[in-house]
Design a protein around this nucleic acid. Structure first.
Length: 274
DNA sequence: ATGCCTTCGTCCCGAAGA
């Protein structure tokens, strides 16, 4: 079974590229992030015509996650247990603290059972800056996900946590580590929150099969980042033991970044033995 | 080569992305 994660940066702008990718990659399950639309705006019919069922969760032009599957799509969840929301209102005397007043859950996670695997499409909060409330939110979001992931692993569930993690785990996952000093994505707390999935028993499959340094999944649109190969590695698949033991390979579809109308992220593919 | 940012909506500027 072939699983793919891809931050498409607007499904409405990218639907032709996404359908072409499904056709040539023969993906069984595609986890999509940043659809940037509401459920009623998602091009469901085009996916169904291509043979894929779709589950989408989008509330506005921000965020939005989906799963497309041709091997079943059951028991859809639009949040994970304990997933925190983000409160826009911040106390004046405590700018770093989120006001815990039942903040709304953002459209950043969708899970479903596809071909016997519990697949999650995850769009981890960006964080914006180390002194921004979004950074606190990001760390809380990752910690809550890890807590749920631990319970799934303890239950020996087959789980694939796929998505845009917005964390650069290693200095060799960025074109110039010095350029990110003092910024988000590389801070020790973010890296610890990412590495905690390994401590929970999960295996990051792209690292396992593609360990080469400076192997990127994202290149900024600005300043010729792609031709200059100034990229980041931020899209990953954490697999529970039941999935990791079936993994046979991983591919980063770098060519998908080329040409007009590309997303700034490329598809990340993992293959599982049947 | 792969090319100087792109997306959306309060739609021609601003916010957000990383």
């Amino acid at each position: 079974m072939r699983l793919v994660t891809w931050n498409v940066n607007s499904i409405r702008s990218r639907v032709d590229r996404v359908l072409a990718f499904l056709d040539r990659s023969q993906a069984d399950v595609l986890a999509i992030q940043e659809t940037k639309c509401r459920d009623d705006q998602f091009p469901t019919a085009a996916f169904e015509a291509a043979g894929y069922e779709v589950a989408h969760f989008g509330l506005s032009q921000w965020n939005g996650v989906a799963l497309a599957s041709r091997v079943g799509l059951d028991d859809v969840a639009t949040r994970f247990p304990g997933q925190p929301g983000f409160a826009k209102t911040v106390a004046d005397d405590a700018p770093d603290a989120l006001l815990d007043v039942d903040p709304p859950i953002e459209a950043r996670a969708i899970g479903a059972t596809c071909g016997g695997v519990r697949v999650w499409s995850l769009y981890v909060p960006h964080g914006r800056a180390l002194d921004d409330p979004h950074y606190t939110y990001k760390l809380a979001w990752l910690e809550a996900l890890r807590t749920s992931a631990q319970t799934w692993a303890d239950a020996q569930d087959a789980v694939a946590l796929m998505g845009d993690w917005n964390v650069i785990p290693l200095d060799t996952d960025v074109y110039d580590a010095a350029a990110f000093a003092g910024k988000t994505h590389v801070s020790p707390p973010e890296r610890a929150a990412f590495d905690a999935f390994g401590e929970a028993g999960y295996t990051e499959l792209t690292r396992a099969f593609l360990p080469a340094e400076h192997t990127y999944t994202y290149w900024d649109y600005q300043q010729l980042a792609f031709p200059r190969n100034k990229g980041l590695r931020i899209d990953f698949c954490w697999a529970s033991p039941a999935v990791a033991e079936r993994a046979t390979g991983a591919v980063i579809d770098r060519d998908e970044r080329k040409g007009k109308g590309a997303s700034d992220h490329v598809p990340v593919i993992v293959d599982l033995a049947d």
